[in-house]
Structures are given as C-alpha cells and as structure tokens.
Design a protein around this nucleic acid. Sequence first.
DNA 1: GTGAAAGCGCTAACAG
DNA 2: CTGTTAGCGCTTTCAC
Lengths: 325, 325
Amino acid sequence: MATILDVAKLCGYSKATVSRAFANPEQVTEKTRNKVYEAASAVGYTPDAIARAMVRGITENIAFIIYEKQYPVGLNPFYSPIFESILQTCAKKGYSLFVSSERDVRLPNGQVYIKKHMDGVILAGKTDAQTVMDLRRQGIKVVLVNSIVDFDDLICVTTDQYGGAVQAMRHLVERGHKKIGLIAGEFSQYVYSARYNGYVDVLKENGIELNYNYIQTIEATVEAAEKCVSAILQLEDRPTALFCTNDTIAVGAMKAVLRAGLRVPEDMAIIGYDDSEMCRLVEPELTTIRVDKELMGRIAAEKLIDQIEGRQTPGHIIETKTELI
Amino acid sequence: MATILDVAKLCGYSKATVSRAFANPEQVTEKTRNKVYEAASAVGYTPDAIARAMVRGITENIAFIIYEKQYPVGLNPFYSPIFESILQTCAKKGYSLFVSSERDVRLPNGQVYIKKHMDGVILAGKTDAQTVMDLRRQGIKVVLVNSIVDFDDLICVTTDQYGGAVQAMRHLVERGHKKIGLIAGEFSQYVYSARYNGYVDVLKENGIELNYNYIQTIEATVEAAEKCVSAILQLEDRPTALFCTNDTIAVGAMKAVLRAGLRVPEDMAIIGYDDSEMCRLVEPELTTIRVDKELMGRIAAEKLIDQIEGRQTPGHIIETKTELI
DNA sequence: GTGAAAGCGCTAACAG
DNA sequence: CTGTTAGCGCTTTCAC
C-alpha cells in the first residue's frame, strides 16, 4: 500500500505538500498539485482515512443505532424511512453512516464501550440516561429519535404521539362512529400511553363510554392483529371502527375483516398510525396518521452534525407534527 | 479524553501493560488486570479504536454499498432483508457495518476514493470491474451481491434468475393459463433478460405463441404497474394471468384488477417475484418466487470476513435456489 | 509477566 | 508556497 512518503519521494516534494495537495488543494500551486497527483496515480496512492482521523481527531462518521424489540432494524417500516433520510443527509454533508441494533460492546473489564470510529450517534427507540452519559464520556455527541431523556442539552426528535392519536380518533367520531375499538401494539410505555390516552380522551369528550371488550393489546404483527380482530368480529355487539396503533396492526385488522367477507370501510372503518409504505399497497388504501419520518431523520442528522462541527444547537425536545392521511 | 498513558500513570504500570490488559487480558496477571481496570474506570478511559486501527492495520468495519436506481437503499424491499442479514452476521462476528448508496467519493485529483475506515465492502446492484479493481487497489476486500463481474477470485452471490422465472411461468401454465402477460420492470440487463427469457422459453416449450400486446416494460413502481395493468384489462382478448417481474409490480397489478371489480386469482392470476414482505400484507396474499435473501446476505458477509481474516475463499459465483411460494 | 522503544500514516504549527 | 518537525494513541517486538 503506497503511503504519502512514496508520493513525496517520487514527485520530489515533502510529505506536507503532498498532504496539502489532497486535503487543502488551494494551498498549493497548480503546477505542484499536478505533479503530486501524477505521482500519486503512478504509485496508486490514496489518503489513509484512519491516519487522518487519528491526527485530526475526527472521523466524519456517525452511527444510527436502533434499539427496538419490535422488528429488526432493516425491516422496520417505521424506522426505514428515518434511516433513509439520515443516510441522505449524511451523504450531503460528507459523513458516512454506521448502522447497528446493538448499542454497545463490552470491554474485558465489563465496561460499556462503543467502537469509536464515529463522532456522534443517533439513538432511536428505547434509550436511557446512562447510555447517553456513557457515550458522551467517550467524546461522542448524541441525538435521540423517537424517545426522550431529560437532559437540557440533549436533542430529542419526536412526534406528537398524543395529538396524532386524537386526530385519528376524532376522524372516526366525526364520521359518526360510536363503537370504536382500540387495537394497541405493545410499544414502549411512552408511545403506548400517549396513544391510549388519545383514544380514551376523545371518547370521553364525546360522551362515549369505554367498552373494555373493544380494547386489545397485542404484539404488533400482522398475524396477531388478524387473529385479534377475527375474534372481535364475533362479538355480539361488534365495533364499527378500529383505531390500530400502527399500520402493521391495521393491515392485519383489514385482512381479518376482508376474510370475514365484510367491506372496509363500509362494514368496518380502520385507521392506522405511522403512514408507512404498506398503507398504499393494500386495497383499499389505509387511512392513517402521517408522521414526518423524512423530517425526523433529517433534523436528527443535521443537529448531530451541527454539534460535531461545533455549532450551537439550542433546543431540547423537537416535536414534529402529525397529519391525517 | 483519557488516554492509555493516564491509566498507566495512575496504576503504576506501563502503557504496554495497560494495552495488554484490554487487548489480550490473558497475557496479564489477574491482579495487574484488576488494578488497570480500576484505574481506567477512575479516569474514564476507553481504548481508542482509531489509534488501534492505525497500528494494527484493521478496522473491523465493513460496508454494504447498494447501487440501484430503483429505490433508495433503506426502503428497497429486496435489499432490506439482505441488509438485515448482513447486519446480523456482522454483529455475530464483531464487525460494524457502514451503509451507503454512493459507492465512491472523488479526490481533488479526480481519482475515485473510498473512505477507508473499512476492511471490506459488499457491493450490491450495478457493479463494474473498474470499481472492484479500484477498491482492491486500496486494500479493500470485495464481495458482490446480486451482480456478477468476471474475476476468477471474486465472490458473487446471486440467485438463479432464469430458473425462478421458469418456475413462475410453469406454475401459471400448469394451472391451465395460455394467455399470460409479462409486466417487466426496468431492471439491470442481467436481471431483465434472465426473467424475460424464462417467460419466453416456457411459452415456447408449451407451444404458446407470444402476444406482444401482453408484454409490457415499465418502471417498477406500484403506480406504473397499476396504470399499465388497467390498460391491459381493456384489451379485447385480455390475458388470464400475469407474470410480474417483482412483487411491487405484482401489487400494483393486483390493485388494478381489484379496482376493476375483478377477482384475484379467479379472473386474473398474478404471480410476483422476490417474495418480499408485502406479499403477505395484501389480500389475497401474493404468489411469488422466493429468493433466499437471508442466505444471500449471510453468505456475502461471511465470505467477506473470511477474506479479511485471511482464510481461503474458493468459489466465484454462488447461486442460491429459488422456490415457489 | 512486564517495560522500553519504535513506529502506524498523516496533519498542523512554525519557519523560511 | 513549501519544508521541518513533532506528535495523534495505540500495539508490538525485543529485552529483562
């Protein structure tokens, strides 16, 4: 592997000049530059990013670490668009992106440790204060997505979970539904209760009494939702609408209804949550609550990079708006 | 940021011993080790991966680089499971994973250059010999997924594209279909022609004549497929079955059929390709050709890591089997 | 089992 | 504009 020294020798300039020709071309005359480049091509030289990172103290890499039990990282319909958005933002800013689902590695002494080929991380999903502190102690900047830890100087990018649930429920109520079921996924406490409260509160504000037969908590999979809703359809006095706390559940619910020979939404209205890709795949297409995942990813990446590059990043909780689709 | 020297000073041992306590614990007595760990915790020390990589010449990072125009990386229903599988394999082997859709960065001299915080890359999608050579010249090991470049010593993990298409077509023919349409996505030449040939050959072997009204090439999106199939449904003598060259197209086709008030598969049989997640979301569920994406990802990652760690990796083209679902 | 010393390949003052 | 020099933090012989 050719090093900077090989190039320097060949073109007759010093290491420093070769270095400048690549890292700060404007600091070198065009003539010199060309000679350097020529020599570099001749020996097949390419700067070594590791050595560079070592002396500069920065890697220009960040990591996106998802910690959710629900689905694997790459297949998660909610995080995929966020991931994609982060990826794009990184590309634009010249950063490379690590992806991982295991937040930490243990040193032989049992200490938590994250491989430090990165200047910062975006943590998504279940996150605790300790992790954030560990990371920071290692000199790594942190931004949270879809989770909140109460440090004043920590950026947490979230959505209005409660507001979205209220939007969904009001939509159903406005269309005349009084018997509305809740099929809730087993999400983190934070997400679960916000959506649950939205359900309960909208019923209350419309004077509709809770019917606990209509409320089910299940694993957030198509299969579980299908099974659960099939059972609900057997109820004497079955609901006319279902609020599903994510789209995967809504798709399962829809399958159950269609298989029972009923129509959506005439016989059973269904609303999902997240506005994932699948909403547009099924027929009829699913009503859902849009969460601006593209924006969440972009903000998270931009704020993180701002911090890495030493720009001030005021703000703590950044809440993006939801919208009915 | 505490360095190894801080720890050495505090515990009274040398840098070398501290280094060993973390990198090769067995080379140090337990007593020493504990003292080192204690001192490390006290000053908040954690080994610096960059410095480590610099002297050892290995990073324990690899990259997954997708070069496809079709969909963005993170949202690609075909590559997502491969990605997930690679991620898992990496985690198991102690490697971290970079993900990217832009294969290269250009140096000021115009040379292609990839940031070398990695020991190897898995290249997916459109790949050319030059890229492979550039990477190798930079000391980076390469494995290809879903693409082929003819170097004897280059591992290419693919599937039997032609065989899969034949399976799909035979399935339709066996169920008595004679008027079979082909809705082909604009994929790479390699994929496109393998699937196209499968279509043509099975028709031939059954003595069915090609009807060019039944063959359409479109952008591989739900919308394009829906539009295309809506038009096909208007044909005087419309087909009774459609072979769609991926599931996204098949889903679009299905939507068009259902919207026209027809039934799937009674009025129009539809078969997709890839066995992506969406097949199980739609109702009725989609018949498709399974491609073992989990296996492809795992093999690619394992072979790459084998190469990085200096193990022999014979073989060139590794073809995984397809299966009708 | 532990220490001393020599770099890994590069950048960043500081001179000239 | 270019060269000299001094490390970045760690691992790894080679001695002891």
